[in-house]
Structures are given as C-alpha cells and as structure tokens.
Design a protein around this nucleic acid. Structure first.
Length: 165
DNA sequence: GAATAGATCCGC
DNA sequence: CGGATCTATTCA
C-alpha cells in the first residue's frame, strides 16, 4: 500500500475529504477503510478554527497531514486530519470506517475512536512521517456522495459530508 | 472564577 | 427526546 504524501493533504479541504473516502486508515496494527468524512475549514462557524487559534484547535492551524484529536461531550474522542497550508485552519473529520480483516463497521467519530483506541495521546501526529498512524491508498475505488453535515447547528445546510455509496 | 455549549451515542 | 459526563472557551 502506498502511504499518502503531504501533497495529498495540502489541497482544498473539500477535495481531500472527498478523496479520503475509500482510502485506508492505518492505526498501529489495525487497518480500516474510510467510509465517511466531513470538512471543516476557514471561518465556517461550525469549525473549531473559525475563531482563531486556541489550546484545543492548534493542529488545525499547523501544516497539512497532522492528526487533530479532541475530546467532546465528556465521553468521546474525534479524529481529524489537517489539510491545506500552515496558518489556515482546516481539517477533515473521520466519521466512519470499516475495519479490514474483521469487517467491523464503525459509523460515528466517537465509536471509531473508542474501538480503535484513539485518544488525546494521538493528537498532532504527522501522518506523513509516523509509522504508527497514517493513511494509505490500497487501490480501492469508492464513490463518495455529498450530504449535509450532522451534529452541528451552524452552517448545517452545507453539503460538506462525504459518505461512501 | 463561574457558566455553558459542544463536530456524540444510547436507551427509552 | 433526554441523560451521561467533562473540558475548553467565553463571560463577568
């Protein structure tokens, strides 16, 4: 499998979010096909990065190809991968994966993080350099469908969610 | 220092 | 539809 280069993540967030569907997320010895993503970037009020850099969202402002893991609702972690250029807040939320081998399906950012064991320890990891966490192209072709994002109130009508059909 | 909203999930 | 459960951010 080919590990995706930083160049892949340095494109527009919407393109990266769409292209990530069908790619393989490698986390330690686990591999999972990404089936669902959402895009968060710029001054979109639903994005954590829309009101400037903070202690929580700083990876969104860093270089592309880094993880951004945050804790939400007191119980769940959510995994993002940052995109675009350094200084511009942008990331793709991984919402759903299908684990290879076991064929388990995790539809939801909180569920996939708890099952794969993703925690705050994995925040701000460079997926282009790390051998532990990265994204690869396994030659799988999945078509992505654009739908409205879920779980947000602001800018909810924007079709920035990509689901494998 | 205190209040509160939050990129969720599950059970009723 | 409400509760669990806690943190970062916002507000006073």
């Amino acid at each position: 499998m080919k590990k995706l280069p930083r160049k892949f993540f340095e494109r527009s967030t919407l393109e990266v979010a769409g292209d990530l569907v069908g790619k393989v997320l490698v986390f330690g010895d686990k591999k999972a096909v990404i089936t669902e993503t959402e895009a968060y970037f710029g001054d979109d009020p639903a994005s954590h990065g829309s009101r400037g850099v903070t202690k929580r969202n700083f990876p969104m402002f860093g270089p592309a190809g880094h993880t951004y893991v945050y804790f939400i609702y007191g119980m769940y972690f959510c995994l993002n991968i940052t995109t675009e250029k350094e200084g511009f807040p942008a990331a793709v939320l991984i919402r759903g994966v299908r684990v290879l081998d076991t064929n388990e399906l995790f539809n939801g950012p909180g569920k996939l993080c708890s099952h794969l064991g993703i925690t705050k320890k994995h925040n701000d990891i460079d997926v282009c350099r790390s051998g532990l966490v990265y994204v690869a192209d396994a030659g799988i072709k999945l078509k992505a469908k654009k739908t409205p994002r879920v779980g947000i109130k602001k800018n909810a009508h924007k079709k920035w969610r990509f689901v494998a059909v």
